[in-house]
Design a protein around this nucleic acid. Structure first.
Length: 439
RNA sequence: GGCCGCGUAGCUCAGCUGGUAGAGCAGGUGACUGUUAAUCACCGGGUCACAGGUUCGAGUCCUGUCGCGGUCGCCA
């Protein structure tokens, strides 16, 4: 490694330029548009922080610089120097009168992404380039804002972040596991949830959350599913199902308000109707499962008590609301074995889904956990799960069991709803789907 | 996996009741001093996914295969 030299200062970014009006600045980036009119030319460049138009009048630059302009192609990486000046016609309010132009890295003529419409399949094939475009940059900045807000929300409330294993023995939910060989231990599976480990951690630290990738090998082909997605799973000791729902609505409201406050330009870039987001403040409506079935039947649905709710049912329930909606206390047989039996109606469990408005579907699934050792063990056997694998999980009920609850928030579904994107595949840098492992 | 749909130029698409393969953008050449996905002129660009069938003749109709998308289920 070389030692630092006097020239190794932090580079100026396009977003810094409004503060530098009247000075000569040097910026590096990539060419996004080229226009020329014989004796005046324009370079629009990007550097990840914004766009900058450089004006190149033939008679004000050297002949060599003018010829270099002719060599530019889309996405050539360049360094430009020149006077920063205000110009009301530009997006950032400034432009550069170019004096010097250096080509850092040439770009082949067949750069696939053009300033025009493309199909989604083509764009996903070129995801490594698609990410450079303004809309995608905006979505990723909003995603990043949400991720930071998640950490801030829990940190401020005294939660401990726990990183749970990605390689697991078969535990958690049952269907759609990705398997891989694991030394002499047989198969390991990519984690579908960190929850069970989260429960153990909650007994150690009180309030915890996990934040990591999760994997589902289901052959889902819908706009709401990925095979690899990021999930946030809080788990709180001594919180019952009601406290759990209060945490969820405070959490979701916090995330939405944070994006509204700090990323208004990005919301504009993605074309989001923010008036709908501005209404998202706790408390959210709560509909008991039994009432939901009655509402659905009144709307003409054929659901019967005991059925799980389908995507169409969810849309019908959400259509009358501008806020996310809780659906509470589903029938036991429609839900996972670890959910606590409802003492007021043992046919049901203490749980909730949180449905996002505008048809974005299930954003959160949460529940109070079964804390009775014998009932939990019976449920594991009833579901024909291998009891031995759950020995440590049952131990949590054997040594100081405790009321506790938690939930899982799907990051990409949350980003999709807040950004208003039609498909969650735009909400993660490199989506993994059934038919997509590249790039 | 069920159902529906799509596959034509580098990209986005048009191509009718079957009759010699099209446009816009991108690329090349040239013009133009304030453009915002600049504009204008000219030029190059095709195994119509693949295989078979019907027909004088198939991008078009039929059958099959492959690839992909949407939707449902699974869930976040």
């Amino acid at each position: 490694m070389s030692v630092s030299s006097p020239s190794s200062v932090d580079p100026t970014r396009i977003s810094d330029l409004p503060k530098l009006v009247g000075t000569t600045a040097t910026v590096s980036g990539w060419v996004t548009h080229l226009r020329s009119s014989g004796k005046i030319a324009f370079i629009v460049m990007r550097d990840g922080t914004g766009l900058l138009q450089c004006v190149v009048p033939k008679k004000e630059v050297s002949e060599a610089t003018w010829e270099q302009f002719g060599a530019l192609t889309l996405e050539t990486s360049i360094t430009v120097s020149g006077e920063v000046r205000t110009d009301a016609r530009q997006v950032g309010g400034v432009e550069m009168g170019l004096k010097e132009l250096t080509i850092l890295g040439a770009s082949a003529l067949d750069y696939p992404i053009q300033p025009k419409e493309h199909g989604v399949d083509f764009l996903l094939d070129n995801r490594h380039f698609w990410l450079r475009t303004p809309r995608q940059v905006a979505i990723m900045r909003i995603r990043n804002e949400i991720e930071q807000a998640i950490h801030d929300f829990f940190y401020e409330r005294g939660f401990l972040r726990v990183d749970t294993p990605i390689l697991t023995a078969a535990i958690g939910e049952r269907s759609g596991l990705f398997a891989t060989e694991y030394f002499d231990e047989g198969n390991a599976y990519l984690a579908q949830t960190g929850q069970l480990y989260g429960e153990a951690a909650a007994a150690a630290f009180g309030k915890i959350y996990t934040f990591g990738p999760t994997f589902r090998a289901e052959k889902s082909k819908t706009r709401r599913h990925l095979t690899e997605f990021w999930m946030i799973e809080p788990e709180v000791a001594f919180n019952d199902t009601h406290a759990n729902m209060r945490l969820q609505e405070d959490f979701v409201s916090f995330l939405v308000q944070r994006v509204l406050e700090r990323r208004p330009a990005e919301l504009t870039e993605v074309g989001r109707d923010v008036s709908k987001l501005e209404k998202v403040k706790a408390p959210f409506p709560r509909i008991d499962y039994g009432d939901a079935v009655a509402i659905l039947q009144k709307k003409g649905s054929t659901v019967q008590w005991g059925d799980d709710l389908g995507a169409e049912d969810e849309s019908l329930l959400v259509e009358d609301h501008e806020l996310p909606v809780f659906i509470c206390n589903y029938p036991k047989k429609a839900k996972a074995f670890y959910m606590k039996e409802n003492p007021d109606d043992p046919r049901t469990v203490l749980c909730n889904d949180l449905l996002a408005p505008e048809g974005y579907g299930e954003m959160i699934g949460g529940s109070q956990r079964e804390d009775d050792h014998d009932k939990l063990r019976a449920r594991i056997i009833e579901e024909q799960l291998p009891v031995e694998a759950y020995a440590w999980y049952l131990d949590l009920r054997k040594y100081g069991t405790f009321v506790h609850s938690g939930f899982g928030l799907g990051l990409e579904r949350t980003v999709a709803w807040i950004c208003g994107t039609p498909h969650i595949r735009e909400c993660i840098a490199f989506p993994r789907m059934m038919h997509r492992l590249h790039p």
